[in-house]
């Protein structure tokens, strides 16, 4: 009897694992196939039936991709752009969220609504004037053109404000009585307490910017200022280039984001679910 229950449990968990593994294989297939193609030699590319597993781990395709296009430079540009946006968003969102959470002022709700409304305006609805504006400023092919338009965030302000509201108001009163100015209070007390929320916003905004496509496509023309997402698709446009080299490039630029995804999974997921799930 006991054995029977045990074996039934065993079979049920084996079948559950089986379903999980099949689902995982389907989800991972696109990445697997990219990796598989990236590992193929040029002659293997022509073989039929197509190989489903790499015969060797070949790094030379990545090297060839790097020699075809300055992927390292593109990567650098993307990292600089994403870091600038991340730092910018952290600063502007911290300051604004602090005012919304700790200062009682006239029209506070109105200003808060103004901030929230920016989340409802699709970026595409403003892209033409923004493009023309950046062009008039002469900011095409510059980091300021890539980063400054994104340095304020309604979502991030909202996220940090929610977190700041959990910090007891008594702390502020005590600090004020001790003669601590409000900016010092923000820097020395609020920010250290809000570290998890700051981490969430940082990872979220970095990834969002790193994966941007349309804006860098519009405002960068010079190869030395291209971001990695644009650069990689340009590889594909080169007719004479083999697919295995393009896929090697894809694998190369996936490494940073996948690492970030694994290392800071908790923060990232907290950021993504912040707007969706209450409690």
């Amino acid at each position: 009897m006991k054995d029977q229950i045990f074996s039934r449990r065993l079979w049920s968990s084996i079948s559950q694992y089986l379903i999980l593994i099949i689902a995982a294989i389907i989800i991972l297939y696109p990445i697997w196939s990219a990796f598989n193609i990236a590992m193929m030699s040029d002659t293997e590319m022509g073989s039929y039936p197509p190989l489903q597993f790499p015969t060797a781990i070949r790094f030379e395709n990545i090297q060839r991709a790097l020699s075809q296009a300055p992927l390292g430079r593109y990567l650098f540009n993307s990292v600089v752009q994403s870091t600038l946006v991340m730092v910018g968003q952290l600063i502007t969102a911290c300051l604004a969220a602090y005012a919304f959470a700790f200062i009682e002022f006239k029209w506070r709700n109105f200003f808060f609504l103004v901030f929230l409304s920016t989340m409802m305006i699709p970026w595409e609805a403003t892209i033409i004037p923004n493009y023309l504006f950046i062009k008039t400023l002469g900011w095409t092919d510059t980091f300021q053109g890539l980063a400054i338009p994104f340095m304020a965030t309604g979502f991030g302000t909202f996220l940090l404000r929610q977190f700041f509201l959990k910090i007891p108001h008594e702390l502020k009163d005590a600090a004020t009585m001790d003669g601590c100015g409000s900016f010092r209070f923000l820097m020395t007390i609020v920010l250290p307490l809000a570290r998890p929320a700051l981490g969430t916003l940082a990872v979220y905004s970095f990834l969002q910017t790193y994966n941007q496509y349309l804006w860098p496509l519009l405002i960068t023309n010079n190869s030395s200022m291209r971001t990695v997402q644009i650069g990689i698709t340009l590889l594909q446009d080169e007719e004479r280039l083999m697919i295995n080299i393009v896929m090697a490039g894809v694998i190369f630029i996936l490494i940073p984001t996948l690492t970030l995804f694994v290392v800071s999974n908790r923060q990232l997921i907290r950021g993504l679910t912040a707007g969706a799930v209450k409690g």
Binding site: I27, P30, I31, S33, A34, I232, V250, T257
Partner: peptide
């Protein structure tokens, strides 16, 4: 498994499109 199921949040539209471009490729796809 949860991490695998959510992996596409780390992948950009551009790289995913390139990966699928070759999944749809007539010979290696």
């Amino acid at each position: 498994f949860r991490m695998i199921f959510s992996i596409s949040i780390a992948i950009s539209g551009a790289t995913a499109s390139l990966m699928f471009l070759y999944i749809y490729h007539p010979t290696v796809g």
